[in-house]
């Protein structure tokens, strides 16, 4: 009898505990709902409305039939991928170096890397104009050194856009990667060496696979953040790089209503989800399997 009563009490306590846990999670769920889920649903809803507010798939027809829109999505994915790859190629060795430094020195260097992330996009972008422009530092040096007679056109193309974006994106890789690298036990590296692995084999077979969680976190952050860039491709691309954000702005100005603009957003969302879903599976496999 007593046991039965206690069982009921324990069950009630357990229910209350679950309720309390849910209560604790509620503010976070509410924020995510309000900041992420609702806007996405709203965009989806707007994308199937015409100017009069009636249901239509015409906006998606525009998306599918206008070659320019598809090519913008391709450009967006291409530029983002390029930025991601270049950021990894630059950011990985940089972060590796940082992870080998004494922590106090590494912290100072990390602040240096984070600095561009803490300045406004506009300032960072125009700073590249100062560097790469006709009268910029690079061209002035080239002419002064006699390498070229006239200033080179370094700006207003894909390369300049990628450079400008990488500058901003490297910190997004460095932060999670640094945390992962710092957490790698040096015992693993000693173990690898004792088992016959030289520095190169130790890096590729042990250190690199162990740094993958930070690398993939940083890679995803960069890729997804790059998709939404607007000012940098506008200013440094000089009209030769049109990413989705710019095209959405054009669509808002050109078409009546939000239909086409939101359809473009949904198109990008779908393309990104497919690409990331694919990448996630590939990278997961990498994490599980020994190299």
């Amino acid at each position: 009898m007593t046991d039965d009563r206690n069982a009921a009490v324990h069950a009630r306590e357990a229910r209350h505990e679950r309720a309390r846990m849910l209560g604790l999670a509620l503010p976070a769920l509410a924020v995510i709902g309000a900041a992420v889920v609702v806007p996405i649903l709203w965009v989806l809803y707007l994308s199937v409305l015409d100017v009069q507010g009636h249901f239509t798939l015409g906006n998606y027809l525009v998306l599918a039939t206008e070659g320019a829109n598809l090519s913008v999505i391709v450009t967006t994915l291409k530029v983002s991928l390029l930025v991601t790859v270049v950021s990894v190629v630059i950011g990985y060795p940089l972060t590796y170096l940082l992870a080998q430094l004494p922590p106090s020195l590494a912290t100072i260097c990390m602040l240096g890397i984070l600095l561009p992330y803490m300045t406004s996009v506009l300032v960072r972008t125009y700073a590249w104009m100062v560097l790469l422009g006709r009268r910029g530092i690079v061209n002035t040096m080239l002419v002064w050194l006699g390498i070229t007679d006239a200033p080179l056109q370094l700006m207003f193309n894909t390369t300049a856009t990628v450079i400008g974006m990488v500058h901003v994106m490297v910190p997004l890789l460095a932060l999670p990667l640094y945390a992962t690298m710092r957490a790698i036990d040096h015992g693993f590296l000693r173990a690898a060496a004792s088992l016959g692995a030289g520095p190169v084999a130790t890096f590729w077979r042990v250190y690199f696979p162990l740094s993958l969680p930070g690398l993939s976190a940083g890679t995803f952050l960069i890729f997804v953040t790059s998709l939404g860039f607007f000012i940098t491709p506008t200013v440094l691309g000089g009209g030769r790089v049109t990413m989705i954000g710019q095209q959405i702005a054009t669509a808002i100005a050109t078409y009546d209503g939000f239909g086409v603009a939101t359809a473009l957003g949904v198109g990008l969302l779908a393309a990104t989800a497919i690409l990331l879903g694919f990448a996630m599976r590939v990278l997961r496999l990498d994490l599980m399997r020994a190299p």
Partner: peptide
């Protein structure tokens, strides 16, 4: 260097590579 000494080492932390079975 360690990798040329042909010694087996068992570490206090075992140091089994977590990325391999």
């Amino acid at each position: 260097p360690p990798h040329k000494r042909n010694i087996g080492v068992v570490f206090q932390s075992y140091a089994l590579f977590p990325n391999m079975d």
